[in-house]
Each structure stands twice: as structure tokens, then as C-alpha cells.
Design a protein around this nucleic acid. Sequence first.
DNA 1: TCACTTTCTTCGATTACAAAACTAAGTCAG
DNA 2: CTGACTTAGTTTTGTAATCGAAGAAAGTGA
Lengths: 392, 392
Amino acid sequence: MTIDDAPRDALRGGPRELLRWVATGAAVSRADLSRLSGLSPSTVSQRVEALISQGLLEEAGAGRSRGGRRPRQLAVPTGGAVVGAIDLGAHHARVGALDLSGRVVQARTLPVRIEDGPEAVLGALLAEVATLVDGDPAASRGGSATGALRGVGIGIPGPVQHSTGRIVSPSRMPGWNGFDVAAFCAGRVDVPVIVDNDANLMALGAHRTAHSELDHAVYIKAGTGIGSGVISSGRLHRGAQGSAGDISHCRVVADPAPPCTCGNAGCLEAVASGAALVTALREQGVPVSDLTGVIRLIDDGDRQATALARQAGRAVGEILAVVVNFFNPQVVAIGGRLADCEPLLASMRATLYERCLPLATQTLLIERVAAGQDVGITGAAHLVIDHVVAAA
Amino acid sequence: MTIDDAPRDALRGGPRELLRWVATGAAVSRADLSRLSGLSPSTVSQRVEALISQGLLEEAGAGRSRGGRRPRQLAVPTGGAVVGAIDLGAHHARVGALDLSGRVVQARTLPVRIEDGPEAVLGALLAEVATLVDGDPAASRGGSATGALRGVGIGIPGPVQHSTGRIVSPSRMPGWNGFDVAAFCAGRVDVPVIVDNDANLMALGAHRTAHSELDHAVYIKAGTGIGSGVISSGRLHRGAQGSAGDISHCRVVADPAPPCTCGNAGCLEAVASGAALVTALREQGVPVSDLTGVIRLIDDGDRQATALARQAGRAVGEILAVVVNFFNPQVVAIGGRLADCEPLLASMRATLYERCLPLATQTLLIERVAAGQDVGITGAAHLVIDHVVAAA
DNA sequence: TCACTTTCTTCGATTACAAAACTAAGTCAG
DNA sequence: CTGACTTAGTTTTGTAATCGAAGAAAGTGA
């Protein structure tokens, strides 16, 4: 199954946008939607009618008058249709059921062992999606068509060809190379399955929830691995091969240059990823087992760990400086487990300001990704919803 | 005067695109246009009618039959409306008059002294534009409104805020900082004036003439200075402040790191620009006066010059590797006077292939910008035409 | 009770495009 | 040289999306 690309009309009054405004509470009535979208009241009425008849929207009684007729309130049906989302990480996966507005209905984190291979891992996660969807108490009140699963979105911590759903030479996912995730999943669930890189999904989720008014944004995901997602003109930029944002193997100055899993040395991933920090600390004789341990050390002010975090921040900043000069985004946000690591963030910021064109940093926002552990599944859900609502 | 941004409908059957297809010879008849654009014959007929009545297109007799009725050939009126274009460089400016298809009607290169300041330089160039437009022999055959100048596009070798036409802290243009080029020119000619960075114009020109079917492209302009222009989803990406593509002050590894005009050291511009090569050679005691001399030395196989060219190529490649990984374009093309310098190109290529993700370089085209010395004015003309035809 | 507001719908008018039928003008086989 | 077939282009009609104006619905407040 080939998924057609980005929603062309996600901008300006498309059904998705109306839905999102209602969902976020930005709009409560048709009149609100008209004002927000710039569409005429008649057009909005018509569209809302269509959405209601599809079960994607419902009326929720009358609101307070503001001096005239009371608005007929709109709402996204709770307990209505949902989408499933999986944000696969190196050691854990976040699995969730979200309503068509992109709000999390149910979610939980599961431990995974990537090395068990795609069939085992994805099979278990899809089963969990099914459980979460059924387990939604509101959804179980009837067999109506609107209460059903409409699609599943999956984020993979490695390069994915979004158009086909196939994984392409991932560096930390033994046994997954070339695996067709979309096809495998399509065989287990009879709804559309959309697969994308985890950083792309984080970018989409963060952009939609926090920066939807900004045109150009870059989101860095720094966890066990390191990647980024790019929003250009309000849309996810995937590039020619779908590998846009994959900065993990950009070379940075580091002495000595640590060897990378890709065979080169001095890659950003080998200097600034969570995995790299663990390795480097171990080599220095510090007994840490995983990224959680490293973060704890840094929070405790451990000198070696902090020094490494600073070096990592500089490395990220170095690459990001080129990206900011080149792409000139309105915002650069960093997410993933390392985003909470203050020293890293601080030296990244410093490097950015030092190395970028003043014009480019003058109004640039440098932030932490806000949405927390659910950004990934939120982004996945948005991707699916865009696809599902477009098809409706 | 604020110019509204990018033509939203430049893609798929807009008037501009029809015009361009006729101009490039891709389409000769209405039927051709229908096939190319995917629009129905009736719609094409209608649009062509409109373009003809605006004097932007004309019928040019019947063509050869291909087994049926002969096509009524279409052509862009020669000697009809023209646009003026100025591609300002560090020492020279290319000035031209182009027809509404973007074809060069008249063009010449003038020496300029940037340091004479904006009024003097721009005044002289605008006068030259007027001469070229009047001097077009075909245009002088009548005072019809279609034979007139419709707009002027200007490329500036420094940061420009495209929306306002104002220059922002240029590094090699003393006396130009903050100058409002658009306003100044609008006072001298009573047609729209559009101002942009020279690299952006080169990108637009090269993309429209050579890569119009590619979505994502990066064009490097390596001349006296060094800059780049970015095409994302078929449109010029200017970024938040309009400074996208300005990679001149990205830091590269160089030992010793040469000081840059910006106050930092080791900037790409201080290592790989034409100006930097001249400076470096002089410091090594080689008596060269300008970039032309440097290029001659390189062509002659001079050891010192060639070594510097290689170092410059590596530096460009280093930055470009990050850009390619991040942006994943279909093509990277290099233009400007240094583009003909083989050793530079070769080491840039090598660095790119060495440092990029295989997935990103697998189908990546790495080329020289083809269109020669007129790319800049061609891009400028396209920008103006897009604006003018959209307004019509 | 009446003027006024806000909300939402209804009803043309407009625009942009497509589909189909038709006209125009040719080729080519017999 | 005639008729079947092709290609080119126009005209007519239909459809979908959207807007604008008018009005209906439902309220507020003096």
C-alpha cells in the first residue's frame, strides 16, 4: 500500500483544520470557525454539516450568549472514532489510542527488545493498540461504526521510506533492514497504517501542538540516537528519499573522534547521542548501564558526565548552526530524553548564538519540546488523521 | 512597497506555467498544453484566450499536422512586453531585458564599483536597463502598451529582506547597510521592482531552466563571496528572516583558521570564497590581483593555487554534507565563477560522497549550474514575471 | 415591547474546472 | 476521390466550491 503524501490543504480551512480548532478549543461554534478560517459562514456551516454526518464532529448543546443568539457548541465526539499510535524507541515504546482531534485517550509505555525482530515487536505492539482501543470505556458502549479504529500510525527510530513504509539500513535495529512495516501491519489490522521516522513524528506532533502558526521549524530528537524533523512552509519536509533531517552521521569536531556504528568516526551520533554518552562514560570507568543512569549522573552534577553533556551540546549546536544558517527557521526545539539535560541544552544554545548569522538568531526561538512523552504518538495520530479525514 | 510572497499557483496549470511551457518550446499548441498541464482542453483554451488578450501570448500560424488537424501554434510575442533584470556582483553587474517567457532579449555586463554607494550604482544600472529596453529593435516599432517595461528584478550580493527590499548588514558592500533598494528604484521607474539575494535568483533561474521537475534543490553560488539558494517543494525557500541559504559564515575546519570580515575566524567565506583565495595566495607571495587571476593560475595547474582550491572544495563539501543530510535534495548544483574550477568541484564532490548518508547521495545529482552568466538575470526575470502575470 | 446583537441557514451569483458534443482540418487506404 | 480515422480546438452544459446578501432564530437590554 502506498500512502499518498502530505495533505495539500492542511492549511486554510480544510476539514482537518476545522477539526483541530474545535479539538483544541480554539473554536466552539461555527461562527468561531468562520472567524478563524476566514471562510464565509455559509461555507463553514456546510463543512461542519459534512463532518457531523461523518461522525467526526458533534453538536454539544448551546453555549453562553454573548449578547445575541447562543452558539450551538461543537465538539469532537468523545468515545467516537480513534486512531492507534506507536512510538517505537530503542528500549521502550509508547502506545496510545487517540481521538480524531489528536487528543490522547489512552496510552501506556511498554518495554521492547528491538533485537527480537520486527514481527515479534510489532505484533506485540499492535496487540496492545487493540487492547487500548477496546479498553476505552466510552468506546465500548455500542458497535457503531464511528466507535471504530480508523488507522494506525507508527514511528520508527531509524530511516524509513515513508511512501512505502519500508525501513532502510537502520544503524541500531538489527534484523529490521528492508522490513516492510506497513505491509506487515496492514496484514494484521484492516485500517490504513502509516509509518514514519520517529523524529518526523515528534516534529509533526510538536509543531501541531505548539507552533502551528510558524512556517519553518526544526525539531531535534536526542535520545538513545539523534535525529531531527523539519517543517517547511507548515508541512513536514521529507526530502527526496525521505531521509531529510537525518543528521546523525554528520561529522563534528571531536578529539579523539569516537568511532561510529556506521564505520566512520566523529559522527554526531557517536558524540552526542545517549548511546554515545553511555559508551564514553563506561570507557572512563564510570559504571553506568543505560541512558537513565547517565541522566541521573548529570542531574547530580557528576563532573565527567557533565563534561560529556557539554561536549554533546556543542556538537549538536555545531551542526544546528549550519542548519539554522541554511534553513533559517523560526524555531529550533529539542526533544527526546536528553532534552531535559540542562548542560547539554545550555552549550547547544551558546554554540548556536556564537556560530549563527545574527540575522538568523535575532528572532529565533530555541526551546525544549513541550508536549512531553506523548509528542510522538500525537504526531503519529495527526499523520493518520490527516490521511483518514482527507479520504473521507 | 511590500511585495507579496511566492506565487502559490506557480505549480500546475497557472498562467505562468502555461507561458513557460510555450516559451521553453515544451508546448506549441493548446493540445500540448492540455497534455502537459493535465487541464482539460476547454480550460486551456480559455486561459490561452486570456493570455492572448493580455498580449502575453500570440498565435503564430499553423504547425505540421500529426495525422489530423494542424495545431494553431502559440508563441510568446517577440518584441512584446519585457522585464528588466540586474544581477549585481562584487565588481561587475549583468544587466538585461528579458521577454515574458524569461528569454534574454538583450544583455550586457558592466563594471561596477560597489563602494560608490547604492545611489550611484543603482542609478547607472537602471539607466542601462532603460537603454536596453528601448534599444530592443523589435520593441521600438510602436507605442503599444504591450511593448513596455513591466517590472525590474534586482539581485544583490548580500543579505536582502525580500519582503521590503531592504539590505541587511552586508559584509562586502560598504555604504549599503539598511538601504531600501526597492523604494529607491520605485522612485526611478514606475513599474514593480523586486529585490532579492543573488544566490536566490541564481537558484530560481537554474531551477526553472534546468530542474523544474525536481522538488528540492540546493544551488551554491561561489564567486567573490559564497552563498546558496534553496528550492523546497518547487518554491524558493527564504526562511523566517529571508536569510535562508546564507552559509557564508558557517565555520569549517581550517588550520590556521583565516579571519573573516565578520569578525570571526574560519568562516566558509574566509576559506572558500574567491576573495579568500585571492587573499591567501597573496599572503603566500603569489602576485594575483583578482579572482580572474586566481582562476587562471588554477587552470594552469599552479601548485599553490590548486591546493587552495582543493581546500576550498573540501570546505564547501563539508558544509554541504550537513545540508544534504538535513535537507535531502534531489540536486546540488554549483554556480558562480568558481564553479568552473575543476579541483574545487572534485574535492567538493569527494567530500560530499564521503560525509553524506548513502541514502541521501544515492540518487543525488551533483552538477555545475548550466545556464551560464545569464542565470542570475533569468531568475530575476522569473521572479518579476511571476509577480506581473499573477497581478494580470 | 422594541431596537439591536450574535448565530446560523438559505439562496442565488460567481468562479474554476471538466465532460461531452461538436466543428475544423487534416491523413491515408482503398 | 471518397470515406474512415486522427488530431486540434470550440461550444455548451454541468458540477463543485465558495462567497455575499438576506433573513430566520434566539438571545440581550433599555
